[in-house]
């Protein structure tokens, strides 16, 4: 079909120029081909967590109740850690790295002088951060399998959930990064990430939070962890659609804000 036909003219630019954000991913892939260490660190981090739960806590706590099943504690925690790994990878990339490129190295100014536009840059960077998170998730999954915590083949259904988590956190991370004014502002990232990691029904079920359960449900990671846990344990509920929707909304809002901010900061 010709690119001049009506359907292409009314199609949103995101569809017409879907190939453009790929260039940003390609650029980042070249950079990381030279610095594979970040992926190796992403492999060890979840491995250490898993070992500590398998060896220590698991023995102390015994089995836990989830969706009417009694499961080994490590198997309860592992999916939430997998969700966290997707979040970590995406946030690491979409905050510090993007800040550097935006404020110091002027990488985006150079990109924007080419046919690429602000939406291409935002989509490309978010996709890359999502992929980095996904690589963390994959290495985590490999650890699960090796340690015998994978449970069933259902665990594979957790992978798309991890992609969605990465997408949402990358988009929100990039959007927030465009507002940062100095490296000191990144202390906030840690300040936000740690409670998200600890209090997203990661280590104990939502019921354990009692009356404060609604606060936990404000955490995007809660929705992500619930999806990954449901998928890996083979429990599908209608409530999962809500989790999916929350993450999609975050991704769309993050992407929109990030695009606007790049326009405001660099295309003035």
């Amino acid at each position: 079909m010709s690119r001049d036909t009506l359907i292409w003219r009314i199609a949103p630019p995101i569809l017409r120029n879907a190939h453009r954000p790929q260039r940003i991913v390609e650029r980042n892939a070249i950079v990381y081909r030279r610095t594979p260490m970040v992926f190796i660190s992403g492999f060890f981090e979840p491995l250490f967590y898993l070992l500590s739960f398998r060896i220590g806590f698991g023995a102390l706590i015994g089995d836990v109740e989830f969706a009417g099943m009694s499961i080994e504690y490590a198997k309860f925690v592992a999916p939430a850690l997998m969700a966290s790994s997707a979040m970590n990878g995406a946030v690491y990339d979409s905050t510090m790295n993007i800040y550097f490129k935006l404020r110091y190295s002027k990488t985006y100014d150079a990109m924007l002088a080419s046919p690429l536009g602000a939406p291409d840059v935002a989509i490309g960077e978010i996709l890359w951060a999502m992929l980095r998170g996904f690589i963390y998730s994959l290495s985590f999954l490999a650890c699960l399998v090796v340690l015998g915590l994978a449970g069933s083949w259902w665990i594979l259904a957790a992978l798309p959930a991890c992609l969605l988590i990465g997408l949402a956190f990358a988009a929100v991370g990039m959007a927030l990064t465009t507002y940062m004014r100095s490296w000191a502002d990144f202390d906030w990232v840690q300040t936000i990430m740690l409670p998200l990691f600890l209090f997203s029904a990661t280590f104990y079920p939502l019921s354990a939070y009692g009356d404060f359960g609604w606060i936990v449900q404000l955490s995007p990671l809660y929705h992500g962890a619930a999806l990954v846990r449901g998928a890996s344990l083979g429990v599908a509920t209608w409530g999962m659609l809500v989790h999916v929707l929350v993450l999609i909304v975050l991704a769309v809002v993050g992407l929109t804000v990030a695009t606007r901010r790049i326009e405001t900061l660099l295309l003035k």
Binding site: H19, R23, E26, R27, I30, V31, T107, A110, P115, L116
Partner: peptide, 20 residues
């Protein structure tokens, strides 16, 4: 605003890629 994370050659190659 050269890309400090890439070699001079890769700077040119990836820039050409931005033009498809």
């Amino acid at each position: 605003n050269l890309d400090g994370e890439l070699t001079p050659l890769d700077n040119l190659v990836i820039y050409g890629r931005y033009f498809d």
